[in-house]
Amino acid sequence: MKKTVLFMIALISSFTVFAQNNGVEMAEELRSSGKIYVVVAVMLLLFTAFILYLFSIDRRLKKLEKGN
């Protein structure tokens, strides 16, 4: 458990380190202004909702299966 936590921290700390611009245009503006976190939040919400929805279907199915 400790190891995974450490690993996650290492990963998160590397989020902020962006490679230097070498002529290839990347969406630096989106990152520096912090707007990227809005996108992340929305995506995270959508996928969490999707997964919770799957779980709820799963639970209802289980109830039906028990009834039979």
Binding site: E25, M26, A27, V39, M43, L44
Partner: peptide
């Protein structure tokens, strides 16, 4: 396994958007 899969997918959504990627022409972000 369902929870593990969900965590993996959610993890990939967050890190996939935030982690640095190699800068390549044509592909960009």
């Amino acid at each position: 396994w369902k929870i593990t899969a969900s965590v993996f997918v959610l993890y990939s959504v967050v890190t996939g958007l935030l982690l640095k990627v190699p800068m390549l022409p044509i592909l960009h972000e």
